[in-house]
C-alpha cells in the first residue's frame, strides 16, 4: 500500500492538469473534459481518504460527484450544441458575451 501522501499528490497533479486544460484549451469540449478530470482527481482523493480512514462516507460522496458530473456533462453538452448551432464554432475565444 502506497503512502496516503503519494496518493494525494497524484490526485493534485491530475487536478492541476484538468485546470490547465480548462485554462489553456480553446476547444470548449476539451474544456469540459478538463472539468471532468478535475472532478476525477477529487474522486481519487475521496476514495484514498476513505480507504485510509476506513470510512465509507467517501464512497457516498463520490457517488454524488458522479451525479454532478453526469448532470454537468449533460447540460454542458447541451449548451455546446446550442452555441454551435448559433456560431458554428466550439472555439472558446469566440464566446465573449461576458464582456460588458
Amino acid at each position: 500500500m502506497i503512502p496516503l501522501a503519494h496518493l494525494v499528490f497524484f490526485a493534485s497533479v491530475l487536478f492541476v492538469l484538468g485546470a490547465l486544460a480548462v485554462v489553456l484549451r480553446r476547444n470548449v469540449i476539451v474544456v469540459l473534459m478538463g472539468i471532468e478530470l478535475m472532478l476525477n482527481a477529487v474522486n481519487l482523493s475521496f476514495i484514498g481518504f476513505s480507504r485510509y480512514f476506513a470510512d465509507q462516507a467517501g464512497h457516498v460522496f463520490v457517488l454524488m460527484v458522479f451525479v454532478v458530473a453526469a448532470v454537468e456533462v449533460g447540460v454542458g453538452i447541451a449548451i455546446i450544441v446550442s452555441l454551435f448551432k448559433l456560431r458554428h464554432t466550439v472555439s472558446i475565444d469566440q464566446f465573449d458575451q461576458l464582456r460588458n
Partner: peptide, 14 residues
C-alpha cells in the same frame, strides 16, 4: 482585464 473570455478569468483564479 474584463475580456469576456471565461478562460482568462479561470486563469486568474488558478
Amino acid at each position: 482585464l474584463q475580456t469576456g473570455d471565461a478562460q482568462v478569468y479561470a486563469m486568474w483564479m488558478t
